[in-house]
Amino acid sequence: MRIYKLMARADWEAFRAVGTFEGSADDRRDGFIHFSTEEQTPETARRHFADVADLVALEVETDRLGAALKWEPSRGGALFPHLYGVLDVRDVVEVADIPKPSLNTGASGS
């Protein structure tokens, strides 16, 4: 199964250069690295990354994370993947751009 870590492209570039990721400020505060399933990713992007212009999703195979990956209830009781450890760049199998949602709702403004 694959899970996703959302972050700004600049953070991905820094992670890639260093080779390991210990988490964002929010991750470190919570004590684990937050991930989302494919189904959870759009809502995670909307709630937590709406102000990030250059957003990417790091795709990670769960089998690579071992026992450090825990599934825990979060938003609405849904189980979310949380990594209690450091993410290695070799665990990232793909990186995809996340398009910024359009702010145009179709209504004419001004």
Rank of each mutant, 00 (worst) to 15 (best):
R2G: 00
Y4C: 06
L6I: 13
A8K: 13
R9E: 14
R9M: 04
R9D: 08
A10V: 11
A10C: 03
W12C: 00
E13D: 15
A14R: 15
F15V: 06
F15R: 09
R16G: 02
A17C: 04
V18M: 05
G19R: 06
G19Q: 03
G19Y: 02
F21R: 01
E22G: 14
G23Y: 07
S24F: 01
A25Q: 13
A25D: 10
A25P: 00
D27F: 02
D27A: 01
R28M: 11
R28K: 15
R28T: 11
D30K: 05
D30T: 00
G31V: 10
F32Y: 14
F32K: 08
I33R: 00
I33F: 00
H34K: 11
T37C: 03
T37D: 09
E39M: 01
Q40F: 02
P42G: 06
A45L: 04
A45Y: 02
A45R: 10
R47T: 10
R47K: 13
H48N: 09
H48T: 01
H48Y: 15
F49D: 06
A50N: 10
A50P: 00
V52L: 03
V52K: 07
A53C: 00
L55A: 10
L58T: 05
E59M: 07
V60T: 07
V60W: 00
V60G: 07
E61R: 12
T62A: 14
D63M: 04
D63F: 07
R64F: 02
L65Q: 08
L65S: 07
L65R: 07
G66A: 12
G66C: 13
G66L: 14
A67K: 13
A67S: 15
A68F: 03
L69T: 09
L69F: 09
K70M: 11
K70H: 15
W71K: 01
E72T: 12
E72H: 04
E72N: 08
P73W: 07
S74F: 12
S74Q: 10
R75C: 02
G77V: 08
F80Q: 01
L83K: 04
L83W: 02
L83C: 01
Y84V: 08
Y84P: 05
G85Y: 04
G85M: 04
G85R: 06
V86K: 13
V86Q: 12
L87C: 07
D88L: 09
D88H: 12
V89K: 13
R90Y: 09
R90V: 11
V92C: 10
V92A: 09
E94N: 14
V95F: 09
I98M: 15
P99M: 01
S102C: 05
L103E: 12
N104Y: 14
T105M: 01
T105C: 06
G106K: 03
A107G: 05
A107I: 11
S108N: 11
S110C: 08
S110K: 13
S110L: 13
S110D: 12
